[in-house]
Design a protein around this nucleic acid. Structure first.
Length: 310
DNA sequence: AAGTTCCGCAACCGCAAGCAC
DNA sequence: CGTGCTTGCGGTTGCGGAACT
């Protein structure tokens, strides 16, 4: 199968991009859209392979990228979506407008993953490494099964959403040429805001009477899978045209109940600050409990203490 | 001040899905 | 329907700067 023979080709540069190369790439995409990535470098006068250009564009030069530190809400969203979706960074990124999958992946690997480990939570399964203390939460295994099942559906749905977002992007950049490339690095115009709406599809997962539903024309999981993708995508378009609060919003809507003490790098965890690991377990236990409750409250609509999501 | 270690992030690699022919 | 090309994705690497000794 054809893998693009990238950097072996004579004269193709690799490594960090210079500002001059950035300008060339931006200017070309401004003018023509990216079109075929393979042919872009030659047309743009770049001695790079198309793959490198695409990467540079999607991860760095795109005008709708927000750079800088992740805020608390974003962190929580990543963690909870990761619990649902695993390492599906592109799917997670669709719920974090202006953040790239690469950035989210990096942030997870360098920050969040370590924090969970320190809290005694397995960053892969999002379960406590020592199950026993939390078994007292009750119903967790049942919830875990539900969560797993849900994740599968959410996964499938997000794939379609992501595809839609990609198509929207392509359409936008092929048909719309924005102003100067300096603008790319600095502003978000009204056009870009429209674009964001397309690029940031939101979920409309709802839960009722213990049954999971996906709001929209495809009201049940079964319907969702039976519908043709086009039908489903078009229904999704209607959804996020009118619905502002998506999965992210839902997650954050319950954010007040989140007990995670992710206070942006100050003290990594309560356990760590307790010094020498003596009292770590209790602190971790509290963190874990809140952590898991925050995730499971997303699944289990028990009316008691969880903040209503809708 | 110099050397070493640690950390964060941009970029690369390779696989696989999607698409066109 | 099969084949080959392009693109997207996730894992990993390596460089540069910060922190530490």
């Amino acid at each position: 199968m054809g893998r693009s023979p990238c950097y072996d080709k004579m004269g193709l540069k690799k490594g960090p991009w210079t500002s001059e190369e950035d300008q060339k790439l931006l200017a070309y995409i401004d003018e023509h859209g990216h079109g075929s990535w393979r042919s872009l470098p030659e047309k743009a006068g770049l001695h790079r392979c198309g793959k490198s250009c695409r990467l540079r564009w999607t991860n760095y030069l795109r005008p709708d990228i927000k750079r800088g530190k992740f805020n608390l809400q974003e962190e929580q969203t990543i963690i909870q979506l990761h619990a649902l979706l695993g390492n599906r960074w592109s799917a997670i990124a669709t719920h974090l407008p202006k953040r790239t999958d690469n950035e989210i992946k990096n942030y997870w690997n360098t920050h969040l993953k370590k924090r969970l480990v320190k809290m005694g939570i397995d960053p892969v399964t999002h379960k406590p490494k020592n199950e026993t203390p939390l078994s007292s939460l009750g119903g967790l295994s049942k919830n875990a099964a539900t969560l797993s099942h849900m994740a599968q559906w959410e996964s499938a749905r997000l794939e379609a959403e992501a595809r839609l977002a990609r198509e929207s992007k392509l359409l936008h950049y092929q048909t719309k040429v924005s102003s100067s490339h300096h603008d790319h690095l600095n502003i978000i115009s009204s056009d870009k805001q429209k674009q964001q709406q397309l690029e940031s599809p939101t979920s409309t997962v709802s839960f009722s009477e213990g049954k999971t539903e996906f709001v929209g024309s495809s009201s049940t999981c079964l319907n969702m899978i039976k519908e043709t993708e086009n039908d489903w995508i078009s229904s999704t378009i209607h959804e996020f045209e009118g619905v502002e609060e998506g999965l992210t919003g839902l997650l954050l809507g319950g954010g007040g109940s989140l007990g995670l003490s992710f206070s942006a790098d100050k003290n990594e965890t309560a356990g760590e600050s307790s010094g020498g690991g003596g009292g770590e377990c209790n602190d971790y236990y509290e963190d874990n409990k809140n952590y898991l409750e925050s995730i499971f409250s997303f699944v289990d609509p028990s009316p008691s203490d969880s903040t209503p999501m809708f």
